[in-house]
Design a protein around this nucleic acid. Sequence first.
DNA 1: CATATTATTGCAATTAGTCGCAATAGCAAA
DNA 2: TTTGCTATTGCGACTAATTGCAATAATATG
Lengths: 141, 141
Amino acid sequence: MSPCQTFIETLRSHGYRITPQREMIVEAIAHQGNHINADEVFALIQERIHSVNIATVYRTLDLLVEQGLATRIDLGEGRVIYATDQHGTHIHLVCRQCGQVLDADQELLSAFNQQLQSDYRFAADLQHISVLGLCSDCQAN
Amino acid sequence: MSPCQTFIETLRSHGYRITPQREMIVEAIAHQGNHINADEVFALIQERIHSVNIATVYRTLDLLVEQGLATRIDLGEGRVIYATDQHGTHIHLVCRQCGQVLDADQELLSAFNQQLQSDYRFAADLQHISVLGLCSDCQAN
DNA sequence: CATATTATTGCAATTAGTCGCAATAGCAAA
DNA sequence: TTTGCTATTGCGACTAATTGCAATAATATG
């Protein structure tokens, strides 16, 4: 089953209705291998059909995040991106001074993840997070 | 030196001008021991003087975060809070389904923090972060 | 203390995202 | 296939936060 179909089936099995709008939004975020923001999703859908509302895009993206099918990452400065759980896992290191974004290896968080589950019974979405801080250049200044 | 004065001096030594507005905003966030959001800061200042603009509040809070004197935490659902670096460090575990917020021990991140510094030369602001995931109740459902 | 420089502010306009509500359209059951 | 229930959508209004710009005021210098 393609990733798209998996998403759709997951939504259906959780009692959500499958609309053309939702299918197109899922396709947009799934086919786009990389990160994507709400505007880009909206633009991709507009290429196919013009009558989809931006509010529906936001609502569907929220739904996908809530269902754990996608993650929402706030990179600061109004940069909010989405990615499917299929997307290669990694950590975004965002410099709070220059705004630069560095990627770090996801493995660094595995011990933390296990502790959250054992100590707090909390299943953290760590496959794709952003961490604010200072990059080496800005530390020097 | 009181925390307020430290903040003010830090700003001054970095070449920023000290205005009454900035002093009041720093006092608001420093005296408020706990988290505070932009609206609350604005309300606290309005009690003293009415001519301060909300845009200045946002700009000053951004400045404090950029300078590492405060942290900005996005708890989702439009809940954005600020706290000084004096504030007791901890991790917010935000459930992506029910919105509930749990606090976890900061210590869990110390190994991760050290690795970011040694492997990526990145000084992460981990004293006060939020992590999205599923709480035990919502995992059960 | 007076002056010049320019960072900061307030204001108004703008943007991104959200919300309430009536109309529409999935889906389950007959 | 038809019907009924109600989740979902589109729309317009609204809110939170940001931005450009001219006026103001903090600081350095003479």
